[in-house]
């Protein structure tokens, strides 16, 4: 074991992992975090705590992660490169681990231009690949990026993101290889809607032996409405929503669109369970945490393994 993560134990034991997501509030509302945490307890193995997502200021991800721990969840502490330099990052990583956080996800972060402080200075002192490598060096060599020794290194399970759909498609698997070489223990992908492309990407990852070196969790997002699907298709950079998904949602009976969204998500999860090279699913039910028990139930991923 590289870390003390429950997710690592589950994956090592060969179980199909199922993880969730929780966005911290735009304020110091701890109760809000607890509310969102409730439906996730017992239904997911780990919950991603987003870090100023879409470049909007929110409660710090480490703080919301600690509240999640109090509620009985295992958090995945997300950290973006946009908001802090290497000193702040390493300090936060040590603090997070000291207080019981065992997993982290290393991300570039959406450009500050998208958020509520568009004229902020984007830090990007290091990039997400370099962050992965920094955490690995801290953990495995017990050294800071600057080379000095760490008194009690953080034994974190290191995650990174991958987008199988961005152009050029040919490059995607090589970029994955680079992240794995940099030290990513697990990968959570961008929301998958285009299953055809996903199958091809995974096939290439398997062929390159990457799935032997890292655990890939496929990102699944249930669509709540036709509007959401169209928005994601046209407005969200890096998202690939095929027309047939939109058509299926449009074809749903009145009042049953969200149900169709969940249906599609469950079919995907079903297929991922069988797909060689996929070690689990990361469910991003955006502002839909209360639906997670139902989705987990319908996707037949319950009960969650106890390790």
């Amino acid at each position: 074991m590289k870390s003390e993560s429950k997710l690592e134990k589950i994956l090592e034991a060969g179980h199909f992992a199922f993880t969730g997501e929780l966005g911290p509030p735009r304020g110091a509302n701890a109760e809000h975090v607890r509310e969102k945490a409730k439906p996730l307890i017992g239904n997911v193995d780990m919950v991603n705590i987003t870090d100023n997502q879409t470049a909007m200021v929110r409660m710090a991800s480490w703080a919301a992660a600690l509240i999640a721990i109090e509620e009985g969840l295992e958090p995945n502490y997300q950290m973006v490169c946009r908001d802090r330099n290497r000193l702040a990052m390493q300090a936060d990583i040590l603090g997070a681990y000291a207080l019981g956080i065992k997993n982290m996800l290393c991300l570039s972060g959406d450009h500050q231009k998208f958020g509520d402080h568009p004229t902020a200075k984007g830090v990007f002192d290091i990039d997400s690949m370099q962050l992965v490598n920094m955490v690995k060096t801290m953990r495995d060599e017990g050294k800071f990026l600057g080379g000095a020794d760490i008194d009690i290194p953080p034994k974190l399970f290191i995650g990174a993101a991958a987008n199988p759909f961005a152009e050029p498609f040919e490059w995607r698997v090589h970029r994955l290889a680079k992240k794995v070489a940099a030290g990513a223990d697990f990968i959570q992908t961008q929301c998958v809607f285009n299953m055809k492309k996903m199958r091809e990407w995974i096939r290439r990852a398997v062929d390159m032996g990457l799935t032997e070196k890292t655990y890939i969790l496929a990102g699944v997002t249930p669509m709540k409405s036709v509007g959401m699907a169209k928005y994601m298709a046209s407005k969200v950079p890096g998202m690939d929503v095929p027309d047939e998904v939109i058509k299926r949602l449009q074809g749903a009976e009145k009042g049953k669109v969200a149900d169709m969204g969940i249906e599609i998500a469950c079919e995907q999860i079903q297929e991922f369970k069988e797909m060689k090279g996929v070690a689990g699913v990361h469910l991003m039910a955006i502002e839909w945490e209360h639906k997670v028990p139902e989705i987990a139930e319908r996707a037949k991923v319950l009960p969650r393994p106890v390790v």
Binding site: H111, D127, Q130, A166, R175, P237
Partner: peptide, 20 residues
């Protein structure tokens, strides 16, 4: 690169364009 990445691209790269 809008994020000055040394190991790009980021996940926001959009059909040849930057996410911004």
């Amino acid at each position: 690169c809008a994020k000055g990445l040394y190991n790009g691209p980021c996940g926001g790269t959009n059909k040849g364009n930057c996410e911004i």
